[in-house]
């Protein structure tokens, strides 16, 4: 899709099993992160990605390979939105019983969510740690973005969909995509600058 290598060639041949497998293997980690930014729970994010993969394979597994990225993103965004809807219904009940819960989650240090390194990073350990801190800080700021801005930013700049494809995946106008992307980038720039992070 977009500027991804190999996507410039528009073929109409149906996706083979290996093509579908390669596509899913290439997109699954980014999809997991996208879902994690949105729902902030690892198990729920994994469930969302699993549902998305299953729906794509069952319903659109026979579609041409070049259509898979956009179809996958549409399903992923819809599945995340379904989660929001269910959560909204659930929260109306839980707020009745959880008025004493603490509200200081937003003040948590981004470093608390640093992932455990299971493989030793190459190069200077001190430099790698700093790099991981920067990555964690950026991910935290992306989590804080309003959902539609985050969705537009990630689809447009991480998944590298073009504006029209992003609009289709989000179910909105191209103008809205541009606005969401612009606001998200501005918010991220300000937030990272405030943290002293220069990219």
């Amino acid at each position: 899709m977009g500027n991804n290598p190999g996507n410039g060639v528009r073929t109409s041949s149906l996706a083979s099993r290996s093509e579908l497998s390669d596509f899913l293997a290439g997109v699954e980690r980014r999809a997991f992160k996208q879902a994690l930014f949105a729902v902030r729970d690892e198990d729920t994010a994994l469930d969302i990605v699993q549902d998305t993969m299953l729906k794509l394979s069952e319903k659109y597994g026979g579609r041409p390979a070049n259509e898979l990225p956009l179809l996958f993103q549409r399903i992923l965004q819809n599945t995340i939105r379904d989660f929001y809807r269910r959560q909204k219904v659930r929260s109306t009940w839980t707020t009745l019983f959880s008025s004493f819960s603490s509200s200081d989650d937003d003040d948590s240090d981004p470093l608390d969510s640093l992932p455990t390194h299971e493989h030793s990073p190459l190069g200077n350990p001190h430099g790698s740690l700093e790099q991981s801190q920067v990555v964690a800080a950026i991910e935290k700021e992306i989590e804080k973005l309003p959902p539609r801005q985050r969705e537009a930013f990630l689809l447009r700049y991480w998944e590298e969909l073009d504006i029209a494809e992003t609009a289709i995946a989000m179910g909105c106008s191209e103008g809205s995509v541009k606005t969401h992307c612009s606001r998200a980038t501005h918010t991220l720039a300000v937030a990272l600058k405030a943290k002293g992070i220069e990219l």
Partner: peptide, 20 residues
Amino acid sequence: EADLAARIRGMLDQGTAEIS
């Protein structure tokens, strides 16, 4: 905007390598 987004993309790609 595109320049900053490209740099953030690089960082996000690094993040995917660190999932559990």
